[in-house]
Simulated scan of single mutants.
Amino acid sequence: MRRILSLLVALSTLFALAGCATKTRSDELTTTLKAYGSTLRWGDFRSAAQFIEPSRRAAHPLSQLDLARYQQVRVSEYDDGAGPVPSGEFDVQQTVLINLINVHTQSERSVVDHQTWHYDEKTKHWWLTSGLPDITQD
């Protein structure tokens, strides 16, 4: 009986710690998504690139052409709609509607950004794995 009781105490402690970890991870996700959204709302695509997972960022750095394209638009709206949807234990997906204004023509258009975020347990950080929004889509 004593053995069962100690096992129950150990399991409840484990579940409590797991719950705390999940809450912390969720809070970190909220903070990261708000910071990323704010960075894009201000049109700071160079800073937004810092949210991209480091190995992906190193393998696919922003080109001068990419930077020039991002400088030709201003973000007029960033609508994250329903927010992130879990797609695994350490992954979430989020679909965002971004309205862009061409600084030369003042025409506005919308792009849909399908974001994938991954939580790195080692660094305790959420990283964007899908890259910056593709503003060349029609």
Rank of each mutant, 00 (worst) to 15 (best):
W117T: 01
D27V: 10
V92H: 11
L5G: 01
Y70Q: 02
L5P: 00
D27Y: 11
F90D: 15
L33F: 00
L29R: 14
S55C: 06
Q72E: 10
L17I: 15
T24K: 11
D66T: 10
T116N: 06
L11Q: 11
D80I: 01
L128S: 04
E121F: 02
A48Y: 01
S38C: 04
F90Y: 15
Q71T: 07
R69I: 02
V75M: 07
E77G: 11
S47F: 00
N102L: 10
R46Y: 03
N102C: 04
S6N: 11
Q93T: 14
L5S: 09
L14I: 15
W126K: 08
S87K: 15
A10F: 12
Q72C: 08
L132P: 02
D120F: 05
T39C: 14
V73Q: 00
R46W: 07
Y119G: 01
T30Y: 01
W117S: 04
G19M: 08
T22D: 11
L97H: 09
S63T: 15
E89Y: 08
Q115L: 01
S87A: 14
D79N: 15
A21C: 05
C20S: 09
P133H: 02
L128D: 00
T123G: 04
P133F: 00
K34H: 09
P61L: 04
D66V: 08
F45D: 01
H118M: 07
L67Q: 14
T24N: 13
T30S: 15
V73E: 00
G43R: 04
